[in-house]
Design a protein around this nucleic acid. Structure first.
Length: 97
DNA sequence: TCGGTGACGAGAA
DNA sequence: ATTCTCGCCACCG
C-alpha cells in the first residue's frame, strides 16, 4: 500500500503490524517474496533513510536496482546514498507510528 | 534445545 | 558523525 514516490522504514512496518521490535522480521519477509508477487519491496528503507544491503550469489552487495526504482519515482538520494526520510515517508498519521 | 545469521533499530561511547 | 553493543523476530542446521 506504500504509494509510488514514498517510502516506509522496516520499523514502521513492524509497528503497524503490531510489534515495533520486529523490524528484522520485516527484512526477512521481504527476502522471502516469491517471484511474480506484486509488492513494492523497493519502497522500504532503513531508519536512516538508506538502502539496506543484501548479498548477491556472487557475495558482493547490490543496492543499485532499488535505488534506480526509487529515483524513477522522483526520490532523490544524496551523494552518500541517503534520502530524506521526513520528506518521503507516508502514513505519518497512523496511530502505530 | 542451542547457537548462528540477517534487506533492523536504538542507545552508549 | 562513527562505531560498537545488545535486543528483537524468524529460520535453519
Amino acid at each position: 500500500m506504500i504509494p509510488p514516490g514514498t517510502v516506509m522504514t522496516y520499523g514502521q512496518i513492524a509497528a503497524m503490524a503490531g510489534n515495533p521490535l520486529a523490524s528484522r522480521a520485516v527484512g526477512y519477509a521481504l527476502r522471502a517474496i516469491p517471484a511474480g508477487m506484486e509488492l513494492p519491496w523497493h519502497r522500504v528503507v532503513n531508519s536512516k533513510g538508506e538502502i539496506s544491503s543484501r548479498r548477491t550469489v556472487q557475495g558482493d552487495y547490490d543496492r543499485s536496482l532499488q535505488r534506480v526504482l526509487l529515483e524513477s519515482e522522483g526520490i532523490v538520494f544524496s551523494d552518500t546514498g541517503i534520502m530524506d526520510l521526513k520528506k518521503y515517508q507516508v502514513f505519518k498519521e497512523h496511530p502505530a507510528l
